[in-house]
Structures are given as structure tokens and as C-alpha cells.
Simulated assay, not measured.
Amino acid sequence: MSSPCDPQHAPAGDVGAALMVIDSRLKSIHDGNSETDAEQQALMDQFTATLGPEGAKDLLDGACTLIFMFMTWLRKAHEDHDKDVIEYVVPTLVATMRMMPRSVRPEAVPTMAGLVIAAGTGLSPNLWRQQYGEWTEEEMTPLEVTAFLLAEHINRITDDSDFATRMIAEALSSSDEG
């Protein structure tokens, strides 16, 4: 029986824009330059201000699609080693978010953990979240942090600081061709 949270029923959103936001965060963290970080933040704020309600929804759906794609990759990588992705990814993710109380308020952590678990079990994160009501403004930064932390986790596993971004960019490129 098909779930109402099956990814085939979910809008993909603007995955390219969501990837740009996450890639920008990854680069600013790894560059370690606070001037560049402030410039990047100003550019991101300017970009998101121009989106409008429909563009913001597309960006949100795109971030959820990224989370789904990252968790799909992580699930397959863990299964190759007979490990459970939920057991190995979620506790670290939750612990990291709990160390970031200015970016991720404690009440957002369970929602983000649920989102990642939904994606890790093959469900659409945005459809899973939708059953609990509309997204809140307070969940936007934790959603970005979740996508960022998953990308960073993949980059650490592969020992390649651009792997997660490149993987998604290649998937987007091949979907445009086909």
C-alpha cells in the first residue's frame, strides 16, 4: 500500500536554489573568513528576500528534496556496510543541533530529527512534515541547518569537501538531459 508521504507525490521544489544556499554555507564554513561569511549572508538574505511566497515555498520544498536525496545516499552507503542509517546518522545530527541553540531552538530538534528519519525510511520529508501543519518561520533555519549537516556528513564520509554538492548537481544535470 502506498503512503501519502511517498516521494512520488511530493513537489521537488527549487532544488537548484536550495543547493546554492547549502553550497554557499559549506564554502563559508570551510573558508573560515568572517568577512566572506558576512558578505555571503548578506547575499543570501538579499536572494531570499526576492523570492516572494511561491519562490520561498519552492526553496523550502527544494531543501526537503535535498534532505531526501542526502538521506537516500547515506542509507545506501550504510546498507553497503550492513549498518542502519538511522542508528548512525540521526544521533550525531541531533547532538550537533543541540549544540547550536542560537540557530536551532530546542523545540525544533525533534521535528528535524523526524524529518531526517522520514527521509531515511524512504518518505518525503515535506509531505511527512505537512501532516503536522504549516511550516513555521522558526523552522526555516533548522531546516537549512539539517540540510547543511547532512551534506557535511556526506563530505566527511567521502573525504571530499564538494562531494554532496557535486552529487546533487550531477543528478540535476542528468535529469535535465533526460
Rank of each mutant, 00 (worst) to 15 (best):
130 Q>W: 05
147 A>V: 12
98 R>L: 13
141 T>V: 13
145 V>T: 08
69 M>Y: 05
56 A>Q: 04
117 I>M: 14
67 I>L: 12
144 E>N: 08
107 E>W: 09
115 L>E: 14
115 L>T: 15
126 N>C: 13
86 I>H: 11
79 E>M: 02
133 G>N: 10
133 G>W: 11
67 I>R: 06
136 T>C: 02
141 T>P: 01
70 F>N: 01
115 L>V: 15
90 V>K: 09
92 T>L: 04
60 L>R: 03
94 V>I: 00
85 V>M: 01
63 A>D: 03
114 G>Q: 12
102 R>D: 12
111 T>P: 07
65 T>F: 09
98 R>D: 14
124 S>Y: 00
110 P>N: 02
142 P>D: 13
56 A>H: 02
71 M>Y: 05
78 H>S: 12
112 M>A: 07
128 W>L: 03
130 Q>K: 08
81 H>A: 15
79 E>L: 09
64 C>L: 02
122 G>F: 10
97 M>Q: 01
109 V>E: 04
64 C>R: 02
136 T>Q: 06
93 L>Q: 02
68 F>Q: 13
80 D>R: 07
78 H>N: 11
115 L>Q: 14
114 G>L: 08
74 L>C: 02
101 P>R: 04
124 S>N: 00
110 P>S: 02
49 A>Q: 15
137 E>Y: 14
79 E>T: 07
65 T>M: 13
141 T>R: 04
79 E>Y: 05
82 D>R: 03
104 V>Y: 04
143 L>G: 05
